Simulated scan of single mutants.
Amino acid sequence: MKVRGVLAAVLLLVLAPAPAQAAPKDSDLRWSVQPSTAKGPDGRDYIITRAAPGETFTDYVGVTNLTAGKLTFTVYGTDAYNTEDGSFALLPAAQQPTDIGSWVTLGARAYTVPANTRLDIPFSVTVPTGATPGDHAGGIVASIAEESVDAQGQKVLVDRRVAARVYLTVAGAVAPTLKIDTVRLEYAQAANPADGGVMTVRYLVRNTGNLRLTGAGSVRVVGPLGWELARTEDLELPELLPGGSVTITEKILGVQPTVRLAAQVDVVPASFDQKLPTVTRATGVWAWPWALVALLGVALLALAFRYARKVRRKRAAGLDTVTTS
Rank of each mutant, 00 (worst) to 15 (best):
L240H: 00
V222D: 10
T67N: 05
A317K: 09
T132A: 12
W227N: 12
D320T: 13
P277H: 01
A164Q: 11
D99H: 11
D273A: 14
T169F: 09
T278V: 15
V14C: 15
W288A: 12
T67F: 09
R212I: 07
I48P: 07
G40S: 03
V61T: 06
F123L: 04
V10P: 14
L240F: 01
L211R: 08
R109T: 12
R212G: 03
G243P: 05
K314H: 14
G153I: 06
G139M: 11
Y46G: 06
L12S: 15
G69T: 14
L29W: 07
A188C: 02
S32H: 04
V158N: 15
V201F: 09
Q154G: 11
R50S: 15
K275A: 13
M1C: 14
L119Q: 14
I144M: 02
T283L: 07
G86Y: 09
G196Y: 04
V222L: 11
R206S: 13
V125G: 07
F73Q: 02
P97H: 02
A137W: 11
G226R: 05
Q264P: 08
R220S: 15
V127K: 04
S27C: 03
T67W: 08
W103R: 02
V14S: 15
I248A: 06
Y203V: 06
A287Y: 05
S36V: 05
V61S: 10
E239W: 07
V125S: 05
R109F: 10
A145F: 11
G107K: 03
G107P: 02
Y203W: 06
R306M: 11
A108N: 06
G101P: 08
T208G: 04
T105R: 14
G5V: 10
S218G: 04
